[in-house]
Every structure is written in C-alpha cells, then in structure tokens.
Computed example of a mutant assay.
Amino acid sequence: MVILSSYFSFVENFKNYPMKKIVLTFGLIIGTILCANMIVMVNMMYGDTVFKGNDIVGYTALIVLFSLIFFGVRNYRNKQLNGAISFGRAFKIGALIAFVASTMYVVIWLFYYYLFVPDFIDVYTAHVLQTCTTPEELAIRTREMADFKEMYKNPLFVILVTYSEVLPIGLAVALLSALFLKKKENS
C-alpha cells in the first residue's frame, strides 16, 4: 500500500514539474533509439548463426546514447533556471530521463519477447555456448544458461534483468552530468 501511495504521489508531483517536457522529450528520444537498437541486434542474432556480439561496443554505444541526458539537463538549466542548478535537481532530471528511456526499453522488450521471439533464450544460449573453448567451460555455461532459462520464465525476473541492462548506465551518466552541470546562482 505504501508503494502504491508513493507511486501516485510521484506521478502527481511529476505532472507539476516544469521539467516534464524535457524529461519526456529526452527520455523518449533515448528510449526510441535504445529500442530500435535492441530490435536490430536481436534480429541479427536470429539471422546469423555465428553472430558474435561485442560487449565493449554495445556498452560504449549505450554511454554515448545516454550522454543525451547531459544535454537534457543542460537545456533545462539554461532555459528554465537561468543557468543555475543544484547537484540534486540536476541528478533528479537526469535520473528521470534515464528512467523514462529504460522503462520504454523494458516495455518494448516484453512485447517483443513474448509476442515475436519467445524462443530468444534458446537462440541466445546457442550463441553463448558457441564461445566456449573447453569442455569444462561448456559444462559450466550449459548449467548457467539452463538456470537462466528457468528464471526467465518469471516475468518479474525478465523485467529486472532488462532494467539492469540499461538503467545503471543511465544513472551513472545522470550522476556525471549532475557533477559537471551543477552551478550556483550568481549573487
């Protein structure tokens, strides 16, 4: 009950924020690009039997994409607050942008996964097992992927895992943006 009242309080307060337009605009832009990238990558995995993802390139792309948070916070600071913003307010705006983008990513993944690629875990498992180089590693990864497949049957787990892919990066960029953009009012 406390969670619901906190949620409704958040929604009611969000309606009154002058930053709503910036949060939604930047959050939806980032979310749209995140979702398009996710769909392209999943389709590449399905279309290429020897698909090799690159985590470094993937996370670098996420950091570059989430860097739009910086511009959203800066835009709000310069246009709404006459060039001055506290660390807390800057972080809150950045975190809200990251949350909007991440939520869009999670919702689209849920629809895409359950409606279009319900065998995704099997395809992903095959790609993970292809990277194993020793029989011992293959046995360990096979057990891990079987456990992951079992946990992925729970929609709450799917939601948490999907948020964990993108939200921490968005929050880290929001934190850095707040550190760089905080600026006291001129007396």
Rank of each mutant, 00 (worst) to 15 (best):
V2G: 02
V2L: 11
S6I: 04
Y7M: 13
F8H: 12
F10R: 04
V11A: 15
F14D: 01
F14L: 04
K15Q: 09
N16C: 06
Y17F: 06
Y17R: 14
M19T: 15
L24V: 06
F26C: 01
L28I: 15
I30E: 07
G31F: 06
G31H: 07
G31S: 10
L34M: 07
N37E: 06
M38S: 15
I39H: 12
I39K: 12
N43Y: 15
N43W: 14
M44I: 00
G47H: 10
D48V: 11
D48P: 01
T49H: 12
T49R: 14
T49G: 11
V50C: 01
F51A: 08
G53R: 08
G58Y: 13
G58F: 13
G58C: 01
L62W: 00
L62M: 07
V64G: 05
L65D: 03
S67D: 02
L68D: 01
F70A: 02
F71V: 04
F71M: 06
G72H: 03
V73L: 09
N78G: 01
N78D: 15
Q80S: 05
A84S: 15
F87I: 08
A90F: 02
A98R: 04
A98K: 05
V100H: 10
A101T: 10
M104Q: 13
V106L: 11
V106S: 07
V107F: 12
V107P: 03
I108N: 05
L110V: 12
L115H: 05
V117I: 14
V117D: 00
P118H: 09
Y124H: 09
H127Q: 11
H127Y: 03
L129E: 08
Q130E: 13
T131N: 04
T134V: 02
E137G: 02
L138N: 09
I140S: 08
E144M: 14
D147R: 09
F148N: 00
V158R: 05
I159Y: 09
L160K: 04
L160Y: 12
T162N: 12
Y163N: 07
Y163F: 15
V166E: 02
L171T: 07
V173H: 08
A174I: 06
L175Q: 13
L175N: 13
L176G: 13
F180L: 15
K184I: 05
K184C: 03
S187Y: 13
S187A: 12
